[in-house]
């Protein structure tokens, strides 16, 4: 503890005034605990999906239902949003120019909503084709796994809106900064989960 900076945050944001460093560290570490419990939830949904991969029971299977182009563009959008969130954190760390922090948050929000729109469209097409969760074990597992990630992105987008309101109300004070760091962890984590979904669900699915 020789360095009076946040140690849990890679983007060590120095210069906290109102909050002491230890309190900030505890808050970030607690959020990591939540993220890891969430990771375990997703891992088990993946495990269930793996066991149900062959259980199509005559309903449309992965090769028929997955649109790889759409999944690819969703991946690109989410990856870019992860990067733009990183740029927002970067701007916050160095100088904290409100224009950049908020601008990049807005870009991230738009990309997140774009992703959700594309994903909702995918689900609508699947359901229109008769690939509903009640048709087979495979479809149940698919609709348990992928929309759970979608719900997380919905939560992330709502959180971005909340943070924009907080920035507008309080400016970039210490608590807002820490909240933005936590939201950043959440947002990057969602992208990591999506990489697993893209590999395990979509790429594996169209390969069959």
């Amino acid at each position: 503890m020789t360095d009076p900076q946040l140690r849990h945050v890679g983007l060590k944001v120095g210069g906290f005034e109102a909050i002491d460093v230890e309190e900030a560290e505890t808050g970030i570490f607690g959020f990591w605990v939540f993220l890891m419990s969430d990771a375990i939830l997703f891992a088990l949904l993946f495990a269930v999906y793996g066991t149900q991969l062959a259980a199509t029971a005559g309903a449309p299977g992965p090769a028929a239902e997955f649109k790889i182009d759409s999944a690819f563009w969703e991946t690109m959008v989410l990856l870019l949003s992860s990067f733009t969130y990183g740029m927002s954190s970067f701007a916050m760390k160095y100088g904290g120019q409100l224009r950049w922090v908020v601008g990049m948050l807005l870009v991230t929000l738009v990309l997140g909503l774009t992703f959700l729109g594309m994903e909702a469209n995918d689900f609508a097409v699947m359901i229109h084709d008769g690939a509903t969760p009640d048709r087979s074990g495979f479809l149940s597992a698919f609709f348990a796994l992928v929309p759970t990630h979608g719900l997380h992105v919905v939560a992330g987008c709502s959180w971005i809106v909340v943070m924009l309101v907080q920035v507008a109300a309080f400016g970039l004070d210490d608590r807002v900064k820490i909240n933005l760091l936590r939201l950043g962890l959440f947002w990057h984590f969602l992208d990591v989960i999506w990489i697993a979904i893209f590999s395990v669900v979509y790429l594996q699915g169209v390969m069959r």
């Binding site: 945050v9 890679g10 983007l11 992860s82 962890l185 990057h188 984590f189 992208d191 990489i195």
Partner: peptide, 8 residues
């Protein structure tokens, strides 16, 4: 991503 974005 853990290394570069989550800074672990």
């Amino acid at each position: 991503q853990f290394r570069c974005f989550l800074h672990i």
